[in-house]
């Protein structure tokens, strides 16, 4: 592809209006464009001295191939070739790269590192206050001696990591400052620090935010969205990207449903509307209701991971 005029390949580039020849076509047997161009540049067209006339738009690509004397792009209107002294050399570079490509590459590295140790990694996402940490603490207690670790993401404080550590599990707190999500680089550093044993389970508790964490792959096996029944049935519709990205939705705090008039069927319907594939579990981390279903789901994912290698 020619990055000056974009005349080949997929890149589109508007070179501007062509330079009109000052001569009538009959008086310009070689190339009216060449004559016009060389007149502008104050050069003799090589084609007059050459035994054969050069084609009007010759491209012998491999560094554009055009000699300095017969570069026949319509100069002068816009970004030009380098043969006009003193003019800037604008080019068009096809990038075609996702803005998040750096994060995606780091996430792929995390995923490889986790797979090598058969570690099941789950990215827990939700709004603030949905009960992620309570759910995790109860999950850790129920999992007993199985190897696991937690990466905690919050803008400030180590309150959540402290709660996790109180259960005896390992936890790394990441404070993102003003950042609204964890990214793959942060998780990569935490993985190095954790040095997880074979077959462990890693819970990544993302920053409480139903928007941005949806777009940042961390290298996890699945996103688990936690939605408490006090938040409102419309949340999946209002923040669809998150629930579309999640494999499992946990409807938490179902013990409170009767007190806040929560319509569990509407929660389920709205979740399925934005993600027909989504799995849904109804849980109360506080009373333990539905926890067994969640533990079974975890066990199933862990055996999948073990078989995948």
């Amino acid at each position: 592809m020619c990055t000056v005029c974009g005349c080949h390949g997929t890149v589109t580039f508007d070179p501007g209006p062509e330079v009109k020849s000052p001569l009538p076509p009959a008086a310009a047997p070689v190339s009216s464009l060449a004559a016009a161009v060389s007149a502008v540049a104050g050069m003799t067209p090589r084609s007059r001295a050459a035994p054969k006339p050069a084609p009007a738009h010759h491209h012998d690509h491999g560094g554009c191939g055009c000699g300095p004397g017969h570069h026949l792009h319509p100069y002068g209107q816009r970004a030009a070739g380098g043969s006009v002294p003193g003019m800037s050399q604008e080019r068009l570079i096809a990038v075609e790269t996702s803005i998040l490509s750096k994060n995606d590459a780091l996430a792929a590295e995390n995923r490889r590192a986790l797979a090598a140790r058969q570690v099941l990694a789950l990215n827990l996402v939700s709004s603030p206050g949905s009960g992620k940490t309570t759910l995790l603490c109860e999950t850790i207690r129920a999992m007993g001696a199985r190897p696991l670790a937690v990466i905690e993401g919050d803008q400030q404080t180590s309150a959540d990591a402290d709660r996790i550590r109180a259960t005896g599990a390992r936890a790394i707190q990441i404070n993102t400052g003003k950042g609204c999500h964890l990214d793959a680089a942060m998780v990569g550093h935490a993985l190095t620090a954790l040095n997880l044993p074979q077959g462990a389970c890693l819970f990544i508790e993302n920053v409480g935010n139903l928007v941005c964490p949806a777009g940042f792959d961390l290298g996890e096996d699945a996103k688990v969205a936690i939605l408490s029944v006090t938040e409102g049935e419309d949340k999946p519709l209002k923040y669809p990207a998150m629930f579309t990205a999640a494999r499992l939705a946990i409807l938490n705090k179902i013990d409170l449903a009767p007190y806040c008039g929560a319509d569990l069927a509407a929660y389920r319907a709205n979740l399925r509307r934005v993600n027909p594939h989504i799995e849904i579990l109804e849980v109360s981390a506080r009373t333990g209701e539905g926890m067994q279903g969640w533990l079974n789901w975890l066990a199933a994912r862990q055996s999948e991971k073990a078989e995948a290698l």
């Binding site: 990038v95 790269t97 777009g215």
Partner: peptide, 11 residues
């Protein structure tokens, strides 16, 4: 859900 840099004009 794409967020891509398509191309850039450079000098």
């Amino acid at each position: 859900d794409e967020m891509r840099i398509k191309d850039m004009e450079v000098a």
